[in-house]
Amino acid sequence: MTEGAADGREERTRAVPTAPLPRPQPVTLVGHGIRLEPLSTAHVPGLQGAVTDGEIHRLPFAPHVPAPEAVEGSVARLTADVEAGTRLAWAVVRATNEQVVGLTTFMNLALADRGLEIGNTYLAGSVHRTGVNTAMKSLLLGHAFEELELLRVEFRVHHLNLASRRAVEALGAQQDGILRAHRILPDGSVRHTVVYSILAPEWPGIRTMLAQRLGRCRHV
């Protein structure tokens, strides 16, 4: 047998199922001091407080964060997407005080290819650098790889949003490339989109790393 034939056989043994995954359903995720609740209109007041906390709706490179008066409409659009099966959306609740501190979604569902994107995420300014983001990503990635049995989870970040890029890289995600002149933003600026991903075989090591990091967090 030639070397090329042996390599081809090895590649065939790595094949993944070709049947599309079933449509994922809203579910509550709990752990590490937070709770991710399926998004509903009941979360509107809490999210209005979250976007004013640190005025995160005014931060650069974050057009997805609504102003307080736009939260209700944003939630309505997101919940409509969930009903249509194109997205899952959660409110992030801090367990210690039951405070709604943010929002996150599974988006760009590619069920035939076993992939999706974690995006449209925002967190109140007061929980930045507290471990909440790490806890949230740990729950989302665990659900994606362990329950939904995905092959790939993707993150997309504005090329100038260095803080978000560092946060995604700290998760262990690998940069796949940059989509140049990918989007025209509401202010007329052009966004180059940096694409990152985590693959299923990488998740066990990343899960261990995140668990160690969360173990060092005093406040989540």
Results as ranks from 00 to 15, higher is better:
157 V>F: 07
131 G>Q: 12
1 M>V: 12
124 A>M: 12
140 L>C: 15
109 L>S: 01
14 R>G: 09
93 V>D: 09
89 A>N: 02
128 H>P: 01
137 K>E: 13
103 L>R: 11
105 T>W: 05
53 D>E: 12
79 T>D: 05
205 G>W: 14
38 P>K: 03
100 V>K: 01
155 F>G: 04
49 G>A: 15
175 Q>V: 00
35 R>N: 06
167 A>I: 03
196 Y>H: 11
59 L>A: 13
72 E>G: 08
166 R>Y: 08
188 G>N: 02
68 P>Y: 07
158 H>L: 01
162 L>V: 02
68 P>A: 06
39 L>P: 03
190 V>L: 13
61 F>R: 03
87 R>E: 08
100 V>A: 10
197 S>I: 06
4 G>L: 07
150 L>F: 11
131 G>W: 06
164 S>W: 04
212 Q>S: 15
88 L>A: 07
72 E>H: 06
117 E>I: 01
49 G>I: 08
48 Q>W: 07
47 L>V: 14
92 V>E: 11
102 G>P: 11
119 G>E: 13
34 I>Q: 07
26 P>Q: 01
56 I>E: 04
106 F>A: 07
17 P>N: 03
37 E>T: 13
183 R>G: 00
63 P>F: 13
64 H>Y: 12
28 T>G: 07
90 W>L: 04
27 V>A: 13
212 Q>C: 14
43 H>M: 12
175 Q>C: 02
68 P>H: 08
213 R>W: 15
90 W>R: 01
87 R>C: 10
97 N>F: 02
56 I>C: 03
91 A>V: 06
4 G>N: 07
153 V>R: 09
3 E>Q: 11
14 R>A: 11
212 Q>E: 15
151 L>S: 09
148 L>I: 05
50 A>Y: 10
102 G>R: 00
117 E>F: 05
190 V>D: 03
106 F>L: 12
62 A>G: 00
177 G>R: 07
80 A>N: 06
37 E>Q: 14
169 E>L: 02
207 R>W: 12
141 L>T: 03
27 V>N: 04
14 R>H: 10
73 G>K: 05
98 E>T: 09
186 P>R: 07
175 Q>P: 00
40 S>F: 14
76 A>Q: 11
24 P>D: 05
93 V>H: 12
139 L>M: 12
60 P>E: 03
28 T>V: 12
205 G>Y: 14
196 Y>G: 02
170 A>G: 10
152 R>T: 06
18 T>F: 03
200 A>H: 14
179 L>M: 12
111 L>P: 03
20 P>E: 05
24 P>E: 06
58 R>G: 09
157 V>E: 02
110 A>D: 13
35 R>G: 08
122 Y>F: 15
219 H>P: 03
76 A>V: 04
124 A>Q: 04
15 A>M: 06
218 R>K: 15
117 E>C: 10
35 R>F: 08
103 L>F: 11
211 A>K: 14
28 T>Y: 06
92 V>Q: 09
4 G>V: 02
8 G>R: 05
202 E>K: 07
70 A>I: 00
82 V>A: 10
4 G>E: 10
198 I>A: 09
139 L>P: 13
57 H>A: 05
79 T>F: 08
214 L>G: 15
163 A>L: 13
150 L>V: 06
38 P>I: 02
53 D>F: 13
141 L>Y: 10
128 H>I: 00
63 P>H: 12
32 H>F: 11
27 V>E: 12
158 H>V: 01
